[in-house]
Nucleic acid binder design. Sequence first.
DNA 1: TATGAATGAGGGTTCATTCAT
DNA 2: TATGAATGAACCCTCATTCAT
Lengths: 221, 221, 221, 221
Amino acid sequence: MVKPESNPPLSRRERLKREREARILNAAATVFSEKGFHQATIREIADLADVADGTIYNYFADKFDLLIGLLSRLAEVDRLQEELTQAQQKGAQAFFETAFRQRLNRIMQAEKILQALLPEVLVNRELRQRFYQQYVSRLTSLLEQYLQQRIEQGHIRPVHVPLTVRIIQSVLIGLLFVRILGDEPLGSQWEKVPQVLTTLLFDGLNPREEEDDRPGLVADA
Amino acid sequence: MVKPESNPPLSRRERLKREREARILNAAATVFSEKGFHQATIREIADLADVADGTIYNYFADKFDLLIGLLSRLAEVDRLQEELTQAQQKGAQAFFETAFRQRLNRIMQAEKILQALLPEVLVNRELRQRFYQQYVSRLTSLLEQYLQQRIEQGHIRPVHVPLTVRIIQSVLIGLLFVRILGDEPLGSQWEKVPQVLTTLLFDGLNPREEEDDRPGLVADA
Amino acid sequence: MVKPESNPPLSRRERLKREREARILNAAATVFSEKGFHQATIREIADLADVADGTIYNYFADKFDLLIGLLSRLAEVDRLQEELTQAQQKGAQAFFETAFRQRLNRIMQAEKILQALLPEVLVNRELRQRFYQQYVSRLTSLLEQYLQQRIEQGHIRPVHVPLTVRIIQSVLIGLLFVRILGDEPLGSQWEKVPQVLTTLLFDGLNPREEEDDRPGLVADA
Amino acid sequence: MVKPESNPPLSRRERLKREREARILNAAATVFSEKGFHQATIREIADLADVADGTIYNYFADKFDLLIGLLSRLAEVDRLQEELTQAQQKGAQAFFETAFRQRLNRIMQAEKILQALLPEVLVNRELRQRFYQQYVSRLTSLLEQYLQQRIEQGHIRPVHVPLTVRIIQSVLIGLLFVRILGDEPLGSQWEKVPQVLTTLLFDGLNPREEEDDRPGLVADA
DNA sequence: TATGAATGAGGGTTCATTCAT
DNA sequence: TATGAATGAACCCTCATTCAT
């Protein structure tokens, strides 16, 4: 299932190479996320990765290619489809809560990389397109299919599928954004977000007959 | 539109100065949004504003100060409080739909400026804090107050107010983000978003007894 | 006659600009001729010209453009046609002696520039073509016309005009080359060359009845 | 062709080494002549020679040493003295025509190497001196001796021997130069040059009583 | 106050050379 | 001895900023 990459007789040389590339990408993520792509210098990344400046160019064509490398790693590690497929066996609401939790976890894990990428994504056409295709539209497609299906099954109200999916996508990205902005409640209560979000999405703000007493719905901080 | 500051007669000299500053800021917004802050050059902005390079430094301390200028203009023109106060006279759902429409309209009007600012907001601590305070947290506060009130009045289900408000904020910012990414449905159906979003927020995805037949809920594109 | 460029009301600013450009080109000629184009650094040229590195780029697009600038100056200052036209009023042999003297003088005056240009001329296609057109082929054409005419008039033996002219051209360039190589006799007896060359070219090596007693034909060094 | 050095049996190992060195020098000549010494990279030469970068440094001390290697090969292969000695048995004019033909043939054969060397010869003091000694002055000396002798024998008019010889040398180098410049007539009629040059050198441009009808003296292209 | 040329620090990138394998 | 990845010094060029006019 998960391409096991099980050709492990990697030569020592090959292992060193991979390890070096990883170190460089890590360093790039750190420096980019702290200073921004343009403020970051190759020198600084090289120092942090403990290689010489020139070595970076044995692994990446140029500075921008480091961003591409980060984006690739982002997409590569992500098990988006598999995760979502598993979650589909649950009910609709549980599916969304699971999906949100997965996505928000991923975002948190990859926060540094995302913080390195996002600013340039907004600015660079090529990166923007790659990011949209490799990162955004994949989730969009899956959600559209899922939502459509569930609507047809009557498990979900008939809504404007494309826009609803965009709205859901936007929440996720927006949450990352506001989190990066340093918003305190989001920073400290990130784990609660999936549930609040799911409840909101399913039950809405409208008051119901039956009072809802589940914990976590009211701020306790 | 609402220019209550028009008290003093303003000398010809003064008018010229203001007009020049506006031209410079416009040029900066255009160039920054197209190329990004770091790719943009003072020369290019000066050319577009039809002034000499050096002139810009009579109006702004340095290149970064142009961003501050754009942020100020963003906040300055915005009638956030007044608009929301007006909307509060409506019912809760109508309030949100109005508020969303206002916000999304503002976002669209100021898209160029926002596209110029956002990348640097993610990268520059000072700008980030200013942006958060002048642009994000103002809405957050107002929404928190409003939501709290309505919950106490029983018009809205008791929800986790801080996170709910962050989620709402995130939708707005995220929508802008996905729009900038070039997402087609968002680009072409931007006007429908407020209603879809409001319905989603209030009624949720859960199916109800009574079928919902209001127009615009199902994609027709 | 010599376009006097008599629009002297050059502003002070303009004069300074021209003077700066000249200083830069002089410095470039010096450094290029001493170290070669690739060994030369912009820093060094700037220092010698007493300007900042960046200033050079206000006058020349890039390092290579300095070579183009040198080539232009070479062609610009040269009064090739006028000089030759004057010389045409003399007899054939006197014409050539005059022409050789003019050319060899020019070469000596411009030796630094030529030494800066030649190596790159051999290496860079664009410069090669420009050099050939602006510097070499102009003389070639004039000589071809002149030789053809004189042959038709019977003042010169019928020879293979194109090759003969190339041979003459080659002597001039070759003499410069051997001079640059540091050849001593050429360095110290450069002024004798035109006469020796002319005699050789007209009378040849074949011995004649009448012994030739003109001075300068036998080495006295 | 004439390989009298073939005394020792040469081990397989030794043969491989020589062959490798030859491949490297060939590659260097090709790349240098096409791009120039400084534009050429060791990588490119190594690729063309089908060896690794580092291998080149087992054969040559550094990049510059490749030029020295080319110069050595140039001098080594050249049978200057033997060829000229043979030619001396002819009459003076035949001698020169033979000598010119030999030299111009050599130049053509070695054009690539010369084109690789000349630019750096003009720029690098050490290479310049070596080139002058190993390539230029050897011919100069031989010609000076020969010319002096013939003059004393009365077969050649008494001319300024040192300068005359320099002029002859200069023609050869200059012809190579103009050829490299891409001059068309020289490129296509290179074989005619020795004869035209010899006639010019011996008979001069002065018209004679007897009309000269030998072929090849008038351009037919 | 507007101008725009001069400034020069800064950084991405190249590539000859080294050296562990 | 051959390999080829790592090294890091070196350099062209950009461009924000200054300042004489």
